[in-house]
Design a protein around this nucleic acid. Structure first.
Length: 910
RNA sequence: GCCCGGAUGGUGGAAUUGGUAGACACGUUGGACUUAAAAUCCAAUGGCCGUUAAGGCUGUGCGGGUUCAAGUCCCGCUCCGGGUACCA
């Protein structure tokens, strides 16, 4: 609550304004106005959305729903919410049926942490936090349809999250059709059938999109939880707690998202998303095209398959490298090398990924003592083991071409392996060329092949360039069954379970015979048991392992089973929440098909860029699966995506680095001091955080300036997608604007029935057009500025026509809805502005006949000249030359050329 | 290293996508009102030169270029932010 002194000052100030203008002026009593209209909207269900399928104009506008944390909203949240609210209100006025819901991503670690400390059930904490968030959001005057509010931790909701999991479990991916299909439609190959039931079962399980298996996973010892690859930061720490993670082999639920890699890439074509986000996802998916090549080992009769993007450089492959974890390492190690190799493998396994990547820029490796045969020239090449080759990518083995790959070059240099140049580089630098040809430098770009033919194998690409070389080599490999064209993706299976209590339980039973089954739809939702203690068990299992009664089940025929103790990660609920908003109370189905078809896809989705990869990629994946199964009607969920920028704040620190709360800081002559101690401070601009003591709470601002000012400032600060620092001084500016608006438009003695002046009409219609245009393009800062410009013009004029005032209230409404409603009512209307038609621009008011041309000489502006717009070019030329001010710049000469851009500029070239 | 953004007055930011750089707002300064302060209103406000005025020069991170005209396009850098990292 705002209980500081400033608040008091402002209270008085606001009252004072009212007193000082006691005549017929509507005072800007923002608290009263805002309370009144929020109550009105609520009581009249103003923003309830009806599934009016007969209206073909629908608009689904969605915010990324928040995790309701204990600290409540900070001013960063409502930035996106205000933006979507403006668009939602605007679209309603434009006649759209608007779906604009809000809900809570309510499962999550903090509530569980709190439960561990206090024993309070996470649902209690969560509900309390949701109440706070809801109250705060309502006080901003956002036009959500609260009847559609959802919460991912609600059994009525997660019943369907569990249901989707069952769909994933029962789906396999048909590579031929590039489509997910029901597991019943999976054909079992004859050679599997012959081996019996277990084999068939294994085969089926190996095809499911959701599977339970041993996996080398990231484990956070501090949180006692596994993390998805994406949740591990590049310094090897857990993104949630910052502690270093370890590798562990654990049985976990995994989702085969890589099957959808290609479709996740091609899906972008029809999406209006920021290119940067698409790029980030493309990077994450990491598609690379190349070939798989088989190398026979010299003695053991094994085949080492490698993936390479440069099959054309096979002639330059002078050695091979296996990852330490590769299945053939043991077998290929010669007797005399065993000790050395085993030691290397052991050391590599102990190294964290942090050591293997960041710290060890210096490459390490060990020779196995074995050789493989290069298929293009039958040359014997040594097989090494090195940890710069990763198990998880490609085949875990590479062919090394040191002359044309930086990493191989470095490794070969260190271990004295041969470097054979097979490409005359495309370079103008003779020094570099000779170095490359001598194997003293590495060349990875294009060039012309040399030393790339062999009579016995019949492959010859000498003289070709990279593109043809790759093509020809792949053709050669395929014709001899030595390899094939291949596409590889970085994207891995998604680790989908967590050792937590506060998440969706898996609808899964592990039977004592080792089989797994999923619950029947009729048994959903599987709810969480109430526990005494929420501590994870010492074994690293989730707290659910302690819920004995809940845990054990018995089948009809007496077989014992145990429920899954893991729960789903937080992503699960947010993967599909946009679908539930369509039909949130449906307990018969996930949603009605008809409604889904009407509302989907989401037309505009706004949220933070921090979800660029994880949430958005996962969510698109699930959606595509649901699409394949015929559950949803479009294969992409979010048509247009926009990322709001981060709101930063000033933070202050002392010389020693101690942070000082912003409200203790005093400014003098551009320098900052601690108001209590007088110590000089440095100002920083940084992300809002508790540790920096620079978190700004919207409650405070709303209490002092009102929700309309708050909304306006959030939008006026700058472009929506930019990061920008919160500066309270700016709130004063927009507050001043609303005060001026009230004084002019809120005073009926200023509103007349006289016909409006053409100057005002022109300004007004220009403003309508600008505001409309800016809303459509999410440029709210300039829209607000144009409203200010119009107000300034109108104030100069003093008196306005009633219609003008009404139109102004309409275009102000999306931005400052409370004040706009109040004005609208003042003008004698008794219906809310929410569904009033947006005013139309009357072009005839906008026509200008005279334009003040800027006249430049050689590009430099010298003077301005008013000329009619209909004037012909030669007349304009005459007018310019004969202007007395021109003589000075012409200097007696004839202009060489005069450039005239109608309605823009005149430039005289001398 | 690679991939994306970004750099404009004292500050947040505008600039119709090549056509008057600095809209709008904050701040500052001066003035009006007031016993006074707050608030409000009016005026000025990129820098430099010019006593005033008229006016001029200069100016969008840096260096080149294209163009009648560049904050905007091209080439080469610097710095800041985000993502990613031995991905074969």
């Amino acid at each position: 609550m705002p209980d500081n002194d400033n608040c008091q000052v402002f209270h008085n100030f606001a009252d004072h304004i009212s007193n000082s203008n006691s005549i017929a002026v509507m005072e800007y009593k923002f608290r009263e106005i805002e309370k009144k209209w929020q109550k009105y909207w609520e009581e009249n269900n103003t923003f309830k959305t009806y599934n009016d399928i007969s209206n073909p104009k629908k608009y689904y506008i969605l915010d990324m729903f928040p995790y309701p944390s204990g600290s409540g909203l900070h001013v960063g949240h409502p930035e996106g919410y205000t933006a979507t609210d403006i668009v939602a209100r605007y679209k309603r006025m434009k006649g759209y049926n608007v779906l604009h819901p809000m809900g809570w991503d309510a499962f999550g670690l903090p509530a569980e942490q709190y439960a561990m400390e206090t024993g309070t059930h996470p649902s209690i904490t969560t509900n309390k936090n949701c109440d706070t968030f809801r109250r705060q959001i309502k006080e901003i005057g956002l036009s959500y349809d609260w009847a559609r509010e959802i919460k991912t931790s609600d059994p009525g909701y997660f019943k369907w999250t569990q249901w989707i999991f069952i769909q994933l479990f029962n789906t396999w991916y048909d590579e031929k059709l590039q489509k997910g299909r029901h597991i019943n439609e999976l054909e079992i190959p004859e050679n599997i059938k012959i081996k019996g039931n277990d084999s068939v079962q294994n085969y089926i399980d190996s095809k499911r999109l959701a599977y339970y298996d041993d996996a080398l996973v990231w484990w956070c010892p501090s949180c006692k939880i596994v993390c998805a690859n994406e949740e591990v930061l590049n310094d090897g720490s857990h993104e949630k707690c910052g502690h270093p993670v370890e590798k562990k082999n654990l049985k976990q639920w995994m989702l085969r998202i890589p099957h959808y890699a290609e479709r996740l890439l091609t899906g972008f074509d029809k999406l209006d998303w920021p290119e940067g986000i698409k790029d980030q996802q493309r990077n994450w998916i990491g598609k690379s095209t190349g070939a798989e090549v088989k190398f026979h080992t010299e003695n053991t009769g094994d085949i080492i398959t490698v993936f390479t993007t440069r099959p054309d450089t096979l002639f330059g492959a002078t050695y091979m490298v296996l990852a330490p974890e590769h299945e053939l390492t043991k077998k290929l190690t010669a007797k005399e090398k065993e000790k050395e190799v085993n030691k290397y493998i052991r050391e590599a396994s102990l190294k964290s990924d942090l050591d293997r990547t960041d710290l060890s820029k210096e490459k390490t490796g060990v020779f196995t003592g074995s050789y493989a045969i290069n298929p293009v020239n039958n040359k014997k090449i040594p097989v090494w083991i090195a940890d710069y080759v990763l198990t998880g990518y490609g085949t875990g083995a590479i062919m090394a071409v040191p002359a044309h790959d930086e990493r191989d070059f470095e490794f070969a240099g260190k271990f004295g392996l041969p470097i054979e140049c097979i490409m005359n580089p495309d370079t103008d630098d003779p020094e570099l060329r000779s170095q490359v040809l001598d194997g003293k430098a590495c060349w990875t770009e294009d060039g012309t092949y040399i030393n790339s033919s062999d009579k016995t194998t019949g492959l010859d690409i000498n003289g070709l360039k990279k593109e043809e070389g790759i093509k020809k080599t792949i053709g050669w490999l395929e014709s001899r069954e030595l390899g094939e064209a291949k596409v590889n993706y970085k994207l891995r299976d998604w680790l989908f379970s967590r050792q937590r209590y506060w998440g969706e339980p898996f609808p899964v039973i592990h039977w004592e015979d080792g089989t797994i089954s999923v619950l029947d739809e009729s048994e959903l939702p599987l709810e969480l048991p109430v526990l005494e203690k929420y501590q994870p068990s010492e074994s690293g299992e989730s707290p659910l392992a302690n819920a004995t009664e809940w845990l054990t089940v018995e089948s009809e025929n007496g077989m014992k089973g145990r429920r899954e103790t893991n729960t789903m990660p937080q992503w699960a609920g947010s993967c599909w929440y946009y679908l539930r908003f369509i039909d949130p109370h449906n307990d018969k189905a996930i949603f009605s098909k008809e409604k889904e078809k009407y509302w989907m896809p989401v037309d505009l989705y706004i949220g933070g860029a921090e979800h660029a990869v994880l949430h958005l990629l996962y969510s698109r994946f699930w959606h595509k699966v649901l699409y394949d199964l015929g559950i949803v009607s479009h294969d992409e969920p979010y048509l247009k995506l926009f990322n709001q920028g981060m709101i930063l704040a000033f933070a202050y620190e002392t010389k020693s680095g101690a942070k000082v709360s912003a409200d203790l800081v005093e400014e003098k002559d551009g320098k900052y001091f601690n108001g209590e101690t007088g110590e000089q401070l440095t100002q920083l601009v940084a992300k809002m955080s508790k540790s920096l003591k620079n978190v700004v709470n919207p409650d405070d601002i709303i209490q002092r300036y009102g929700a309309d000012s708050f909304r306006l400032y959030e939008m006026f600060m700058g472009p929506l997608d930019a990061s920008k620092p919160w500066d309270e001084k700016g709130v004063k500016g927009v507050f001043g604007f609303l005060t001026k608006v009230t004084r002019l438009f809120g005073d009926l003695s200023n509103i007349t029935d006289e016909p409006e002046s053409s100057a005002i009409l022109q300004a007004l219609h220009k403003t309508i057009r600008k505001v409309e245009n800016d809303i459509e393009n999410l440029r709210f800062n300039t829209a607000i500025s144009s409203l200010m410009i119009f107000t300034n013009i109108a104030i100069k004029k003093g008196k306005l026509n009633k219609e003008t005032a009404g139109i102004f209230a309409k275009i102000l409404h999306p931005f400052a809805p409370h004040l706009a409603e109040e004005l609208w009512e003042l003008y004698g209307n008794n219906v809310s502005l929410a569904y009033i038609d947006w005013p139309e621009v009357n072009e005839s008011y906008l026509k200008e006949e005279i334009f003040e041309y800027p006249v430049s000489f050689n590009g430099k502006l010298r003077f301005k000249l008013e000329l009619p717009l209909y004037m012909h070019d030669d007349e304009i030329e005459n007018a310019v030359i004969s202007d007395e001010r021109a003589a000075r710049w012409l200097d007696g000469k004839k202009p060489r050329k005069i450039i005239i851009v109608k309605g823009r500029i005149i430039n005289v070239v001398v």
